[in-house]
Amino acid sequence: MQVLSSRIILRPADYPLTLAFYRDRLGLAIAREYPGGTVFFAGQGLIEVAAHGGTDASSTFEGALWLQVRDVTETQQELADHGVSIEREPVLEPWGLWEMWLRDPDGVRIVVVEIPKDHPIRLDSRRP
């Protein structure tokens, strides 16, 4: 299988509330809009909030959205300024990443991550 693009599609119970959360509170840039839906840029991926095609139930998502930011402390303040409730403040995890947790209006878990400059993910493995 050759994947050309991908995105996560959320079908929230309250479309206007969830749309406002991703657009206004998280401040994600809009990739495109169409009648009944909005697609947001999320780094190298996309998040689509759709008001169509689902049931009347909230989105169920067993995992988490993983969003990498440059500075998790600045992001925490920015989100707080926009009224976003932080479920868990930034913590340096044993695997070396700074992680902060929050949830969208349907309870979808969002992990906001900062990768330190010296973390192996950011090191060039081609150099000895």
Rank of each mutant, 00 (worst) to 15 (best):
D104P: 00
V72W: 05
S59E: 04
V91M: 15
T38D: 03
E48G: 00
L19A: 05
S6A: 10
V69I: 11
A42W: 06
S58R: 15
A13K: 12
V113F: 01
V72E: 08
A42K: 00
Q68E: 13
R103M: 08
I86M: 12
H82N: 14
T73G: 10
V69N: 08
E74Y: 07
M1Q: 03
K117R: 15
R122N: 15
A42C: 15
D24G: 05
V72I: 12
Y22N: 01
W95N: 08
G45D: 15
I121A: 07
L10H: 04
I47N: 02
L97S: 11
I9W: 07
R103T: 02
E99P: 01
G45P: 11
G36V: 05
V112H: 08
P120E: 12
P105M: 03
I121S: 10
D124W: 13
W66N: 12
R103P: 04
G63Q: 05
D56E: 12
L26D: 10
D14A: 06
E93I: 03
P120S: 12
F40V: 00
E89M: 03
R88G: 00
P105K: 07
G96V: 11
E48L: 08
T60I: 02
L28T: 07
S59I: 04
D124V: 09
A50W: 09
L92N: 13
I8F: 01
P120Q: 04
I8E: 02
A13P: 09
A42T: 07
S85A: 08
Y15F: 13
P35Q: 15
E87K: 15
T18I: 01
A20L: 10
M1A: 10
A20Y: 02
